[in-house]
Nucleic acid binder design. Structure first.
Lengths: 133, 133
DNA sequence: GTACTTGCAAATACTTTGCAAGTTT
DNA sequence: AAACTTGCAAAGTATTTGCAAGTAC
């Protein structure tokens, strides 16, 4: 947790209890929606406002501390920024999991074919997780 | 265009001028947002309602005639369903382009690592297109 | 003490729904 | 003629903004 607090300080984002609660949830769940953040924090922290959640998410997105994940059929989810990784999504239970895949070849091919420079990739694979099968 | 009209008929979706206009735009632009569909059609067809655009998009999504593309930092875009492909997105001009990439290895790896079955993939690569560099 | 953040209420934006009139088949 | 679609207005949901009071540093 301390590394997160240090990050906030370094980026001149003041450390408030609301922010710590949001970051803890992202750390715990990996990927979480605004609706779920609000519901979970509100339970122990009844004065929390939805506007505060949105403002904080937007602030943390701007400083590149968290990342938005848009997934067809789901609300947007947010995750703490970490090394690049891909996502597996279970069509049965809705779970989203990180997975480390070797993407070098894919990206090299894409550069060759498209003549784009490439900064970032978003790779999502949909299927059924082992627990749901 | 006729293949699209046939598809609608086969799926018991009535062929209206509004629907034809939406499909023509998707065919022409490849990927287009609700906002842009509405603006472009409204120009020649002033009575068109936004609700009609939404209803039609939802009907076409349900019959799997079109697909939604969620892209971070962009409005959702819609495309006609065709063979699987990936997307290149230019961070400068915002353009979205199809690209055919070999994804077999990636998907095989993912199955092995995660033990998921995999039905579908969403691969987006962000960078700068040749025209913007 | 200054500057930023919070919570509330209001505003804006986005999407869906109900229904009467019109269209497609 | 039956069934579906359209456009409008209203409702519902999601997100942002303004501002006074409170908190972090």
């Amino acid at each position: 947790m301390n590394k997160y607090i240090d990050f906030l300080k370094t980026n001149n984002i003041k450390v408030t209890p609301q922010r710590i609660a949001i970051i803890e949830l992202m750390d715990q769940y990996g990927h979480i929606s605004v609706r779920d953040i609000f519901a979970k924090i509100k339970a122990n922290f009844p004065t929390l406002s939805l506007a505060t959640v949105y403002k904080n998410i937007n602030a943390m997105l701007e400083s590149n501390f968290i990342k938005e994940l848009k997934i067809v059929g789901h609300d947007s989810k947010y995750e703490l920024v970490k090394e690049d990784h891909s996502h597996m999504i279970c069509n049965e239970c809705g779970k989203v999991e990180d997975i480390d895949l070797e993407t070098k070849t894919l990206i090299t091919d894409a550069k060759k074919i498209s003549n784009y420079s490439i900064d970032e990739s978003n790779i999502q694979l949909f299927g059924i997780c082992p627990e749901c099968r």
